[in-house]
Computed example of a mutant assay.
Amino acid sequence: MALIAVGVVLLIRQPALLPNWRAILWSPSGAAVLFTRIAVGWLMLFVHEMAHLVTARAAGVPGRVAFGTRLQFLAVQTDVSGIWLAPRRVRLTVYLSGIAVDIALCAACVILSVLTGPHPAYSIALLTGMSMLATQACVFMRTDLYFVLQDLTGCRNMYGDVVTYVRYGLARLMGRRRPGPIVHVSRRERRWLAVYGVVLVGGTIACLAVFATITLPVTVALVVGAVRTLISPGGPSGTVDAVVVLTLLATTQFLWLRAWWRRHGRRLRRRGAAVVSA
């Protein structure tokens, strides 16, 4: 808390310490920019997940870190399901520990910028931490704040219940018969589920729209540029840069597909077997 407080005070007194997005483009080499962002991002993700794991272990709850997917994002998730049996104070500590570490790392970058002068590493880490904190607000993707919200509202399975309602509504609109929605929730839970349902549907649509209009075009542009460089090489440095860009992008997509298949593959195989047997 002291570290965070010092960082906040310094930012208030010197707003120029807050870098803009151009700080990410610290090098003319696209490979260097991508590699730096990926390296810093994964390092901070590792520290974030270790915070969950360590606080859960301190409470006597085992945990497991693994890759997962949240819509189009590749994510690292820590499974600490056993923490649900712990007191609320312990549960909230585990849920919020990663966010607390993210804020502390951002504060440390601000303090280091003041003590040693500005550096691209501090700017990239600070912007990465801020983007990670912003992502936590996307509770429709079951982020850490989602579990905090679920705990404070007293809902047992907020995401699953809302998905059940949405699928039921879509099935009725399409004229399909489907079992009725869940009825075991209280009136208080229903109110919170209605609010979360709006957030879930709206947030998912907005997130996929950003992917279609920003992320996908940028990725396609990087791939096309790298392929053109390989086809008409302008020199060894350009060729190496293009190979690194394609390798980094392909690795990220492979990890996403692998995590997505691990989560949804069994269900898809069952549906495929049902279609074949029919």
Rank of each mutant, 00 (worst) to 15 (best):
G225H: 07
R64E: 07
M130W: 12
R187P: 00
I214D: 10
Y95A: 10
A171N: 13
V185Q: 13
F140D: 01
T55Q: 04
A56Q: 00
R176Y: 12
V227D: 11
Y159L: 00
I24Q: 07
L133Q: 12
G272K: 08
G82V: 10
F211H: 01
F147R: 02
V220M: 12
F211D: 04
R262Q: 14
L152D: 01
F35Q: 08
L11S: 14
R178L: 15
T69L: 04
G117T: 14
R190E: 10
T69K: 06
L43F: 06
S97E: 03
R263P: 02
Q150K: 04
V199S: 00
V80D: 02
L85Q: 07
L208A: 00
G272Y: 12
I214N: 04
L193D: 09
G234S: 11
M132N: 13
G41D: 05
Q72E: 03
C138A: 13
D161R: 05
A273H: 08
W192K: 04
V148G: 02
M1I: 04
S186Y: 06
D241W: 11
A59E: 11
S97N: 03
G169K: 03
R156K: 12
A104S: 15
A274C: 10
A104N: 11
R228A: 15
S113L: 05
W84Y: 05
V244G: 01
R267A: 15
C138Q: 14
L96N: 02
F211I: 01
C106E: 03
T153V: 08
C109S: 04
L34N: 01
G202V: 03
R142H: 01
V195H: 13
D102G: 09
L74R: 00
A171I: 09
L152P: 00
